[in-house]
Simulated assay, not measured.
Amino acid sequence: MRAIQIINAGGPEVLNPAELPDPEPGPGELLVGVAAAGVNYIDVYQRNGTYPMAMPYVPGLEGAGRVLALGPDVTDFAVGDRVAWVEALGSYAERVTVVADKAVPVPPGVSDEVAAGLLLQGMTAHFLVNDTHPVQHGEDVLVHAAAGGVGLLLTQLAAARGARVIATVSTAEKEELARAAGAADVIRYGEVADLADAVRNLTGGAGVHAAYDSVGRSTFDASLASLRRRGMLVLFGGSSGPVPPVDPMRLNAGGSLFLTRPKLFDYISTPEELRTRATDVFAEVVDGTLDVRIGHRYALADAATAHEDLQGRRTTGKLLLLP
């Protein structure tokens, strides 16, 4: 089969097209033909060594496709079923094995591309607004990188729950996307001298109830300074780099603030929780609450270009590889 293989950690150039043997499903596993694979920042962290990986390996965790074969002891799926997943390393390939307990059925009305473009980032947005900081009607929330894959979905969900979303973006095109997703106000990074002051001016000086920050190093201080008393900074990514160590007294001085660094896999830690959360986000696509924007589609062999575009912040919405 055709796949992307990484032999050594490094930049996008280490994403090498390769011909590899077809995988075989083991007990409790599915063999799936990959229709679309999602490109995510966790793939970048694994590729560049931030998250050390055993080498060599085939990257990619997320995708959607059709079941080709069943391993022993699989009872919940049949050959031909459409499934999606977010925890199957090796998804940058034509075929991948997926643990059956980590697969979710794709409902009618949701295409393979939408399923692959939605699941990881959609469930991330879902737990952020429902569990980490349950967004309430009338709250003010700050969403960084609001035209990105998670940002667009997070903006839609927060706005649907009655929050006023203040979005940050880098360009006029991204501002238009953020507003279409439901952002009430949009701040462009390069057009304000002080981001926290701009946020506070939009909230009558009070600040926001929650700041959702996937950017990290370059926005962390502004996010913290944008919070109202007892506000929460939800740091769920680091596209600009890791945040240096934080003195907890900064939370005290800022007004009894909260800081959390969540990850999706702690919110889908059981098959039941995974299925429930996936069912919810698929339902929100079907009923029109969520519009999944596929920002760009790449051939499998162009995985390096996809990573370059993602890291260069040249993208909006979701990036997909199409084997």
Rank of each mutant, 00 (worst) to 15 (best):
A35G: 13
K102C: 10
R293E: 12
P248A: 03
T276Q: 15
Y92L: 04
N8Q: 15
M249V: 14
R250A: 12
V106H: 04
H209K: 11
A147N: 06
D81Y: 03
V14D: 08
N16A: 15
L89M: 13
D194P: 03
Y45S: 10
S256R: 11
Y45A: 10
G80A: 04
M1I: 05
E19D: 15
E113L: 12
L30M: 03
G255H: 06
R230C: 11
L257Q: 04
Q311R: 15
G60K: 02
V186P: 12
M232E: 12
P323S: 05
T289A: 07
G182L: 01
T260I: 05
R164W: 01
H296F: 12
G80M: 02
S239H: 11
V129N: 09
L70K: 02
R95D: 05
A103H: 00
A183W: 10
D185K: 10
N40G: 08
V143Q: 08
T270Q: 03
D194C: 07
D73G: 04
I4P: 07
G241V: 12
R217L: 15
R313V: 08
F236C: 11
R229Y: 12
A100Q: 01
L20S: 07
D43C: 01
G11R: 14
I166E: 08
A283D: 12
L321D: 03
Q46I: 06
T97D: 07
P323F: 00
